[in-house]
Design a protein around this nucleic acid. Sequence first.
RNA 1: GCGAUCGUAGCUCAGUUGGUUAGAGCACAAGAUUGUGGAUCUUGGGGUCGCGGGUUCAAAUCCCGUCGGUCGCCCCA
Length: 437
Amino acid sequence: MATFQTLPGFREFYPEDLAGRSHIFRLWRQTAASFGFAEYDAPVLEPLELYKAKSGDEIEAQLFSFTDKGGREVALRPEMTPTVCRLVGARANALRRPIKWFSIGEFFRYERMQKGRGRCFFQFNADIFGEPGPEAEIELIALLVQCLCAFGLTEQDFYVRLSDRNLWFHYLGALGLDEPRIRAVLTAVDRHEKHGDAAFASYSEQFGPLDPGIKERVMAFLSIRSLAALEQTLAGINDERLAARLADWRRLLRALEAMGLGRYVEVDLGVVRGLAYYTGFVFEAFDRKGDLRALAGGGRYDDLVQKLGGPTLPAVGFAIGDMTFALLLEQRGLMPKILHAPDVFCVIDGETGRLAAFPDIHALRAAGFRVEYPLRDSAFGKQFKAASESGARLALIYGGDEVARGVVKVRDLAQRSEVEVPKSQVALHVRDFLSVR
RNA sequence: GCGAUCGUAGCUCAGUUGGUUAGAGCACAAGAUUGUGGAUCUUGGGGUCGCGGGUUCAAAUCCCGUCGGUCGCCCCA
């Protein structure tokens, strides 16, 4: 039957699937709003140049790109950051600081599919522009943690690894490495967790073997897992920029501690976040079991707005992907079973009952209640079964007997108890019942 | 781009050394049931066995190709 197939890596959302997705989006929106972030949106299709500007061939290879009918080179957006930089950059002078924005959008990457990765996916993105100090990181890491906790996840389920590219840069500089060598070492550090010593192979190819003394200190540095260890390692080095970074670290960790979020955050200098544009703190959220890919990632990118043609504007941001996150919620049984339950299900006997029920059904719906009824006549037993399966809390019964007496029987489906209510008071009764909860 | 593995109903799968009209459970629908709940029973709809080619009297079954799913590698903005 299915002559046409969904394109590889693309997803369809049947109502049950969409219900789960909407549930996730709803809580993300709610959480971002409670932190005072404003929602924005932007085009899905962008000039190819926007992504070429800051990245290499590898990334271009994973873009859905083509030439449009006007001869423009365009690409489906693979991420939000360049777009939001352009938006903010274009009006930077007119926007009140701090600029706290979020969005939920779909993104596209032409990749091979794997667990938690497809060719299209949704991301929650949150960014703060115009704040150079760690106050921006405090706000964003708190938001990230709450975006996961809002679903019932706890510190048993996930944690945030916190690192600092800026610190790495200064530290490696203090060890006497120049910038190209520093970048090569950072690439090796990024891969070290997965590949072990082999991660340094590419460095050796470019620059010859890394000095054993330096390598030892790199290995020690990437094993740092606490602020105390960090302070101790840097104690012997006299460099004011390193001292200033340490002060930022203390402010950041103290603030998160004060919010009660210390248990979610782990210092981990082994994280450097592979590519390009991060310039300061970087962080990634993982599930504790470690059998899923990263849940979220972000960091500071103070140069990007300018690189994309805007003014100098410091920025921090992160993104949570929907696929890995949904896998985690399902694993932990935190995905609600019924997400579209009506408030009220009507049980109706014949045409007479139907005509009696319609005014109430419409009035309740107009008042904002979710009301369902069988479109066609069917046996009461079936209707009650349907009512029960729908997840509705109340059944309104319009039988011949009730209609004749001008009443409606209201059944509490959970308690299996019934009361009769004069027809004129149905809406009131329903409102009272449902508002009690 | 590379590798492994798998494609039979909406889902999970069975299908003998190749042999008549391809099966089950779940799900869906109808009835038993003309006023009370996740039960039971009966019945029903739904499949060009991913697609194409080959071998054969005969292919879901064997061979080749291809498309797709899943999981890794690369990459992960």
